[in-house]
Design a protein around this nucleic acid. Structure first.
Lengths: 127, 127
DNA sequence: AAAAAAACCGAGTGTTTTCCTCGGAATAAT
DNA sequence: ATTATTCCGAGGAAAACACTCGGTTTTTTT
């Protein structure tokens, strides 16, 4: 998320090389590469190879939510991994699952309520 | 949470032995012991030794929230573990932390909005 | 008094997840 | 050519998670 915030802050200034992100956020370039592979596969960023290359947001920052980023790198936002949809053997399992589902929904709601534009704005305000 | 729901369902019927919970929820008795140690330390349940013993809720089910249970077993409900309060070196870190804090708060809010009484009711409705 | 049922307790274990490294290949600008 | 960069597959160390094991103490029942 921190990396994507950096890219969002450079939205109009062309591609951002990971070397720069690595420096700014103190995250190894190699680790960032791995993360950006996921972001690229999810079509949130486009990569430009070679010198003067780097990553660019695939859509305007205001249209990419934090939820989009989380889902791209960590998969679906949910607390439990129970797919016995409707056919639960244990009723209590499903009673708690109802709760976990509510929590997951709430998490998604908050994360989808913040865009990269918002994060970039907050970050600028803090610096 | 499933175990506590079972105990809550037996609220008026005296202590619930873990053997019963283990059977009902298909969780090993030994694992449950470990979990209930935490619940007891957090004063959510009281243990009664010996035959006819078992665990009882320390307070009425309607006054114990799912959040209480989660915090007792897993610790504080928060997504990130950053305690650089205010003194963040990297501004972007803190921008994202604001988001994580919002998400954590939202999770707590949902979990504290459901009591064991609620869970027990839901479970009964499902059986 | 003996036996059984249950909570208590500390330590250990296998698996998965998380976070991260390594070495290289392809591509583009200088 | 050289340099800067993304692209890619394969690991690897450490922590978290989900448990197990072997025993002790307490209480009720027989």
């Amino acid at each position: 998320m921190r990396a994507m915030t950096v890219v969002a802050m450079h939205e109009e200034k062309g591609p951002v090389p990971l070397r720069l992100v690595a420096e700014m956020e103190a995250i190894s370039e190699q680790y960032l590469e791995q993360i950006f592979m996921g972001l690229r596969r999810a079509n949130l960023v486009t990569g430009q190879r070679g010198a003067k290359g780097g990553y660019t947001l695939a859509r305007p920052a205001a249209t990419i939510t934090a939820g989009d980023v989380v889902r791209a790198v960590e998969g679906p936002i949910k607390l439990v991994d129970c797919d016995h949809n409707g056919g639960c053997l244990r009723a209590h399992v499903c009673a708690t699952r109802e709760l976990w589902d509510k929590v997951s929904q709430s998490m998604s709601q908050v994360m989808d309520g913040a865009t990269l534009h918002d994060l970039a704005t907050w970050a600028r305000a803090k610096s």
